[in-house]
Design a protein around this nucleic acid. Structure first.
Length: 579
DNA sequence: GCCGTTTTCGGCCCGACTGTTTTCAGTCG
């Protein structure tokens, strides 16, 4: 985890962003841990950090709206004050004091596997270790091995960790591990005596990246499955192996956990292993309040199991309706389940078309159209990038689309263009060209580093253009790559609502623009979302499913999605954007 | 430090596995 102290020092007036505030709270928790403070106080800081990190709307934004931060889950009076101080000054007295009391190396050592607060304290108090180099020497000359609690295996593991350097914990794009997951599940399903094999964890919650793969199996006899698991050909290293739980690392570097339970515990085990951690903790707290106990084996009243065979039964026992895995982040889904107000999430089959595909020549257009038809789409918007698009080529494309439409076959092709919103907010194509099209997609493609204020004004001006219909690439980010550009998304959403235009959820697995929180912002603002493939090749139309994953994690329902509309309704929607 | 459909005080999610121990600390989800 990135430490706040590793960040460059900010000027005092700089407003801290949520990630930095959460890092500061986590660092306080680490330092309190090293001082053997009250464990529940430590947990309170960690809970606070998790709340802030998952918030989506900036703390500084809430402060300027005059909101009471102690209304946030896990934030009380004390933490609310510290959040304000951190957000506005970048500092907080408690953290400064703790940093003075504990050597700087301590928090770094805490993140080495096998080292917790007790052992780290022994290292700097008993051996006076204040750097990784000093630790390396103490490991080699045997001093560490003489400390109580440091055995030969731990010494060897620490030597390995230090030699390997501080490899940052890697996350893998979900799309990249799909093949591995399917192969491994098939491998395990062939084990004798296995009843069910299912992938849980963040993969099942359809997060865009996964840190590891979690597999649940049910069986009476666990050994045949466990043997088959650790004997899998791709396994590079077995980290832990027990009768019901094991962990391995595959050659690709990804970690895989397996858990085996009896079939009558399938639902509760799947629920526990799917997480998220925050969701699971909230459920277990809810169980406590009802004088029940929830664990991976079931829901218990005293010693008697009252539920657990299915996930449905677990939620029912807690007085909740079933919660889709994509929503399980403790971001209000439990309250909504209790109130019976959970969204009915959009599904792939709800999509009637796609409003952002690329095809230049007549042949490419026909191929893309046929691919769209095979995937059940009734309409397809072709929108080439405006740069390098001369009027003659655009006219040829339009002619090719008109010929396709004249045949009357599905899908209906809609004539669009993807145009840059210039730095001054004007659009990168002449008005008379734009006027001849069915729809105009506008996006930021240059000058991504403008200030928050200027970037926001630029987009707002762009959207006011009389032909503007859809804001595409609403963040400019690339998964595991380029960070998003800085923009006041809530202002953009409000302006989109007032202007009556739409926002795109770019489904390309490397992009996935429009975050989960931004999906919810769009929904709350009443802005329809266009889930778009941005396909340049026919098979990339399948990427729409990644857009659906994101939309579901963003609580979107069918009515929230522009391209869930049938063709006639969609054409009305587009017509209404024209001024 | 947070929190309240028994509670404003007295609780705080739960269990498996490893390593180093003979009762516990650390890690994971």
């Amino acid at each position: 985890m990135a430490r706040a102290r590793a960040q460059p020092r900010k000027p005092a007036k700089a407003k801290l962003r949520n990630g930095e505030i959460a890092d500061a709270l986590d660092e306080i928790a680490d330092l309190l841990d090293l001082q053997s403070a009250n464990p529940f106080r430590i947990r309170a800081y960690r809970n606070g950090a998790r709340t802030v990190r998952g918030l989506g709307v900036e703390i500084s934004e809430l402060i300027s709206q005059g909101r009471d931060l102690s209304e946030l889950p896990g934030i009380g009076k004390d933490l609310a004050v510290k959040l304000v101080t951190l957000a506005e000054t970048g500092k907080v007295t408690l953290l400064d004091e703790l940093r003075r009391a504990v050597p700087p190396i301590a928090t770094e050592l805490l993140h080495l596997t096998g080292l917790g607060p007790k052992r780290v304290r022994a290292l700097y108090e008993d051996l006076d270790i204040h750097s990784l180099e000093q630790l390396r020497r103490a490991l080699l000359d045997g001093r560490v091995g003489e400390l109580p609690g440091f055995g030969p295996k731990l010494v060897a593991s620490l030597k390995e960790s230090i030699a390997a350097g501080s490899a940052p914990s890697r996350r893998f794009p979900r799309a990249a591990v799909r093949g591995t997951v399917e192969h491994l599940v098939a491998h395990l399903e062939a084990a004798p005596g296995v009843e069910r094999v299912i992938v849980a964890g963040s993969y099942r919650r359809r997060q865009e990246t996964v840190g590891d793969i979690d597999i649940l199996a049910t069986a009476e006899m666990t050994k045949p499955i466990m043997d088959r698991f650790v004997g899998y050909g791709e396994v590079a290293k077995v980290l832990a192996e027990g009768p019901t739980r094991s962990t391995v690392v595959l050659r690709s570097g990804i970690q895989v956990d397996i858990r085996i339970v009896p079939d009558e515990s399938y639902g509760s085990a799947l629920n526990y292993f799917t997480g998220s951690k925050a969701h699971s903790i909230a459920l277990r707290q809810l169980a406590q309040k009802r004088a029940l106990k929830l664990n991976e084996y079931g829901v218990f009243k005293g010693k008697r199991r009252t539920a657990g065979k299915t996930e449905q039964s677990v939620y029912e026992a807690l007085g909740l309706t079933y919660i889709d895995p994509e929503l399980r982040e403790n971001r209000g889904e439990i309250e909504a389940a209790r109130a019976g107000t959970l969204p009915k999430l959009v599904e792939r089959r709800d999509l009637r078309g796609d409003l952002h595909a690329h095809a230049a020549t007549a042949d490419e257009i026909a191929a893309m159209a046929k691919a769209a038809r095979e995937r059940g789409l009734d309409y397809l918007g072709i929108a080439e990038r405006a740069e390098g698009l001369d009027p003659r080529r655009l006219a040829q494309q339009i002619a090719a689309m008109d010929r396709w439409n004249a045949k009357g076959a599905a899908p209906r092709l809609l004539r669009g263009v993807e145009v840059d919103i210039r730095e001054d907010g004007s659009l990168g194509l002449a008005d008379e060209v734009l006027a001849g099209l069915d729809f105009v997609i506008g996006s930021i493609q240059t000058k991504l580093a403008l200030s928050r204020q200027r970037q926001t004004e630029r987009i707002l001006r762009g959207m006011r253009h009389p032909r503007f219909a859809i804001l595409a690439h609403p963040s400019g980010r690339l998964v595991e790559g380029r960070p998003p550009y800085d923009v006041e998304m809530d202002r953009v959403m409000r302006a989109a609502r007032e202007r009556g235009v739409f926002v795109e959820l770019n489904a390309h697995p490397d992009r996935l623009e429009l975050t989960e929180v931004q999906c919810r912002m769009a929904k709350e603002a009443g802005v329809l979302v266009s889930i778009a493939s941005d396909a340049t090749r026919a098979e990339e139309l399948d990427d729409l499913s990644y857009g659906i994953d994101r939309a579901r994690r963003g609580w979107l329902e069918k009515p929230d999605v522009l391209n869930s509309r049938p063709l006639a309704a969609l054409e009305k929607q587009l017509a209404a954007t024209r001024r």
